[in-house]
Amino acid sequence: MSDEHFLPSNMPEAPDASEPLDALPESARRVALLLRECGHEKPVVMLPQTGKTSAEAALGLGCSVAQIAKSILFRRRDDDAPVLVIASGANRVDEDKVAQRVGPVARADAKFVREKTGYAIGGVCPIGHVTAPVMLIDEDLLQLDSLWAAAGHPHAVFNLSPEELIALTGAPVADVALRA
């Protein structure tokens, strides 16, 4: 994998693409190396501003909010297992739909997120967790050609297709979006 950053051709203001792998923050470097081990050739990109919210990340990348594959962590009530939902940035997650698939859940606090994933909120990557989570992928992500997911740090993201997301995580696809 090259240390050059892949950026979509339609991006108006591309983040700096010259940062070498060793210049990444430790958590993002860990993700970059894990992606490389998995055969994923697109590198981690550092955003100049935070990507803690889907809107911030989309603005920094010049993509739609729907293309942000946001990671929402829940705590399963019966056994305290982490439940990670990778959802379109344009969607709110319907906790009842998630509970129907995995059992009753509650929102996770920052301490639980860090302990179970190894990442801070805003930087939770779909892979490389301390404790393997139960996972679900929002079916709406499959309608898109290109996604951006957090890469272990609030400023770090990486590009992938919905098919690559499924292959990297092994997670089932489900209807998890809150519908009006």
Rank of each mutant, 00 (worst) to 15 (best):
A171P: 14
F158M: 02
C125G: 07
A180H: 04
D22P: 00
I68H: 03
E95Q: 06
L144P: 06
R114D: 03
S146T: 11
L160W: 06
D175G: 15
M11L: 01
A174Y: 11
A14N: 02
F74E: 06
E163Y: 09
R30G: 04
V134N: 03
P43F: 02
C125W: 08
L61N: 08
V44R: 05
L33N: 06
K97E: 14
L59P: 01
P20D: 03
S88Q: 08
H5C: 09
I86M: 15
A81N: 02
L84G: 10
M135E: 13
H129T: 02
R77L: 15
L47G: 04
V130C: 04
A151S: 02
V93W: 06
H155R: 10
A99K: 04
R107T: 15
S54E: 05
F112A: 11
A58G: 05
K97H: 08
T169W: 10
V31G: 00
H5E: 06
P82G: 05
T131V: 15
D16P: 02
V31M: 00
A32N: 01
D145E: 12
R36W: 00
L147R: 08
R92Q: 13
G152W: 02
P104K: 12
A81E: 09
R101C: 15
K42E: 01
D79I: 09
T53P: 04
L160G: 07
S18N: 06
I127A: 07
E26V: 02
I137F: 13
P172Q: 12
A99L: 09
K52S: 13
T117F: 10
L34F: 01
V31D: 00
E37Q: 15
S27V: 00
K70C: 07
R92F: 12
G122H: 10
C38N: 03
V176G: 03
L61M: 12
E41T: 06
